[in-house]
Amino acid sequence: MIVEPSRFRTSFNAPGVLGVADAGAVYAGLLEAVRNDMASADGIQEGDPVRAAEIIVDLVAGEEPPLRLPLGREAVERIGRSYRQNLEELERWAPAARAADFPGAPASVRPI
Rank of each mutant, 00 (worst) to 15 (best):
G16M: 03
L18G: 06
E4R: 14
P66Y: 00
T10Y: 03
A75M: 02
P103D: 05
G104S: 05
V57Y: 07
L30R: 08
E32T: 08
E32F: 07
G72P: 02
R78N: 15
D37T: 05
P49L: 04
A107L: 12
P66S: 04
V57P: 07
A33D: 10
S11T: 12
P65W: 00
E91T: 11
D42F: 13
L67K: 08
M38D: 09
E88I: 07
G29Y: 02
V50E: 07
R51A: 15
L69C: 05
V34L: 04
P66E: 08
V50F: 04
L31S: 04
A25E: 10
R81M: 12
R84W: 08
A94N: 10
E91L: 13
M38C: 11
P95W: 00
T10C: 00
R84E: 12
G62V: 02
A105Y: 06
A52Y: 06
I56L: 00
V109C: 09
A33T: 11
P49F: 05
R9D: 10
A39P: 01
R73M: 08
L87C: 09
P103E: 03
E64Y: 05
N36C: 09
I44T: 12
V34A: 04
L59P: 04
D58C: 03
P66R: 01
R68C: 04
V26D: 15
I2T: 11
L71A: 00
D37R: 08
A61Q: 12
I2W: 12
E4L: 15
I112T: 14
A105P: 01
A14D: 01
E4Q: 15
P49C: 01
G47C: 00
E91A: 08
E4F: 15
P70T: 04
A52I: 00
V76K: 07
S108Y: 15
P49A: 06
V76S: 07
G19R: 15
E88R: 09
A28K: 01
N13G: 11
V50S: 06
A100K: 08
R78Y: 15
I44V: 14
M1D: 00
G47V: 06
V20F: 10
D22S: 05
A53W: 04
E32Y: 05
A107Q: 12
I112V: 14
P49W: 02
V20K: 14
G47H: 02
G47E: 05
A39Q: 02
Q45L: 08
S11D: 15
L31G: 04
L71Q: 02
V17Q: 10
E54C: 11
R51G: 12
P66M: 07
E74A: 14
V60N: 04
L69R: 06
V109H: 11
D101R: 15
V3T: 01
L71C: 02
N13E: 13
I112G: 14
S40F: 03
E77D: 13
S6M: 06
G24C: 07
A97F: 08
A21S: 14
A75D: 00
Y83E: 14
L18N: 11
L30K: 09
L90K: 09
M1L: 08
M38P: 03
D22P: 02
A53P: 02
D37Y: 10
A107Y: 10
A52W: 03
A100D: 11
A25V: 01
G80F: 05
Y83P: 07
A75W: 01
G43C: 05
I2Q: 11
A107E: 15
G72F: 05
P65F: 05
V26T: 13
I55T: 14
N13V: 06
